[in-house]
Amino acid sequence: MSEATRTDIRTFIIDNFLFGDESQPLPDDLSLIDNDLVDSTGILELVSFIEEHFEVKIEDADIVPANLDTIGKIVAFIDRKRVH
């Protein structure tokens, strides 16, 4: 499941925040904020995508960098949400 989640998240980020540009490496631990891939509205786009695509409910308290700032953290967060 995590691998499929990872692929979907990567695809969303490449399409939506990198506009298809795959020339730059996008490792799982790359900070989306520090590398200017997302800003405040970008985070909300990301949250909407996760809620709709993975059918998980995200509380306000969940919207923190510890859960959403790298692909690795996003995948782990979605996995945890699904378990619950």
Binding site: I33, D39, T41, I63
Partner: peptide
């Protein structure tokens, strides 16, 4: 006047 910011956590605000 920026609704996107009003919904952000302190952690994200600090990072942005």
């Amino acid at each position: 006047y920026l609704p996107g910011l009003q919904q952000q956590s302190p952690e994200y605000l600090a990072r942005f």
